[in-house]
Nucleic acid binder design. Structure first.
Lengths: 298, 298
DNA sequence: GCAAAGGCATAGAGACATTCTATGAGGTGA
DNA sequence: TCACCTCATAGAATGTCTCTATGCCTTTGC
């Protein structure tokens, strides 16, 4: 579902929030490196777009109206997410010059690293981080070959020659759309789950392998797929708008569950928990930046 | 802290996410109502801005690269927040034609209503909602005079003639910047808190009144202000970048605390909890849309 | 009182970006 | 092999956004 065509630009919201924080259009303009008239006109444009006055302008500065305060609050949520993307990107881009080379699995890179890096980059503004995203096998491979300093994985694997530290937890949960029959009892026997075709990632994904292993341990067969999709987003969207369950990382659907777009279904006796761990080569002293990052996370 | 100057536009991220979801640039272009070359050029521009290839283009469509999958995940977080703003705005704007008139206090309108409304508008796409933001007294006043159908407040008040339902909880918490002396023990006696000048909202705000009442109950004096600011955002920013504590709604600082920008400090024997409640006029049947919204929330 | 300083709005010109239509090239499937 | 779908390119027109220069207003300090 695309955003409305007249949705305000990120830059305008950013500018407006700065006006609210700094108390004047001029100062906000300076903070953003644009001229005062330009800022003034952009704020006016924003007010026209939203159809409401956001600022009370006076000779001593500008204060937000009631509506302005509320809109600024909403805008800050967007900007917070934007800063996380920027933090992740700068790590991505620093691939060549990074002083701390991180390699992380998809789930961690998508849902946890941006927050960690955003925070870390505030504490260490001069240090660049390089980020590579890969599957667990590749993560371990990179560390063993000295191509990365610090790795993050979510699967327990053979870790010869690597030290590790647990930095969080994740588990697979079963979710359905609110209209799905399972949504009302909010519980379903594992046999029924195993017998129901699911929306899934393609074969080979870690999530799918973990589910298959758990079902096998219970003496049940392979899960079958009603739909195989190549990205977590796609799976999520298919479950929200469709009529099939999926089994997916809790991290990936937390926001949707809180917002009520998805319902988590309890499946007694099916438990697929994974510890999220940082790993690094044994023997080498962990670079000081890496220690600092781990301290930050913990 | 403004966003980097070259940060991608919201519209481009939106378009890119659509490409990932729909599997082709052409289809995404159609979904956004622009021509295919325009979409193609915007995606290319996005790739140049980010300095990485996001899509593998082929004659059968386009699939995201590894980097593309990760960036799409980050972008979705931003877009989710943007949709919430859009939902709040459309309620704001519908002031004249709304079929369900809501009046809510600041905190609830800022931090909870957008999620509720975003979800509600998906379930009831044809129904418009009007939203007014006001303090608790005004909320009650509007309901008594029939100027609104449903209200949300966070203070227990005299509610003669109004029915109510509890829809959530909030409490005041004490927070400081990570560099503040209180951040390390993470606890401070209430006497020390009462004796320390705080960053505060202006006199008259509900938060400030609740804190003053709690301290009075403990036989302590009025809290003093090192800085008085007119919006929650401003208070938050002052605490993050300054050296003074504040006592503030947990809802308002949850994201900062999780991200490590702020540290929550335990203050034994100081507890200021508030129930968030929906209120509506007694006797009148609650409009069906209002019931539906309350069901959604619960 | 009066000047100085800071704040915001307006006007006009110029640079820049973005859009569209039309077209071409490449691969897939019937 | 033909029809269809994919995406990329070219060129022109449109529009938007920026900047500098200026004016008016209020508050502050002498």
């Amino acid at each position: 579902m695309p955003l409305p065509a007249s949705f305000p630009e990120l830059a305008s919201l950013d500018l407006f929030v700065s006006v609210v924080e700094l108390g004047s259009v001029s100062q906000a303009a300076a903070a953003h490196g644009v001229s005062q008239p330009s800022a003034s006109s952009r704020i006016k444009h924003l007010e026209r777009q939203l159809g409401m006055r956001l600022l009370d302008r006076g000779p001593t500065g500008s204060l937000p109206t009631d509506a302005g305060v509320v809109v600024a609050g909403w805008a800050e949520t967007i900007l917070r997410a934007a800063h996380e993307l920027a933090a992740g990107l700068s790590a991505f881009r620093a691939a060549q010059v990074g002083r701390l080379r991180i390699v992380a699995s998809f789930t961690i890179a998508e849902y946890l690293l941006p927050q960690w890096l955003d925070r870390f980059s505030r504490d260490h503004p001069r240090d660049s981080i390089a980020l590579e995203v890969a599957n667990s096998t590749t993560v371990i491979d990179r560390l063993r070959h000295g191509a990365a300093d610090l790795g993050f994985i979510e699967t327990p694997a053979e870790l010869d020659g690597l030290d590790e530290a647990i930095v969080g937890n994740d588990e697979l949960v079963t979710v359905v759309a609110p209209s799905h029959p399972w949504a009302t009892p909010r519980t379903v026997p594992v046999e029924a789950l195993a017998a129901t075709p699911l929306v899934m990632r393609e074969a080979g994904s870690g999530t799918r392998a973990a589910l298959a292993a758990a079902l096998r341990d219970l003496g049940l067969g392979e899960p079958s797929a009603v739909l195989e999709l190549g990205s977590t987003s796609a799976v999520r969207a298919a479950v929200v708008h469709g009529n099939s369950p999926t089994v997916i990382s809790r991290l990936a659907v937390d926001a949707e569950v809180v917002a009520g777009q998805l319902v988590e279904v309890d499946v007694p006796s099916l438990s697929v928990a994974r510890e999220l761990r940082a790993v690094w080569p044994t023997g080498t002293t962990l670079p000081s930046l890496a220690s600092a990052l781990l301290d930050d996370i913990g």
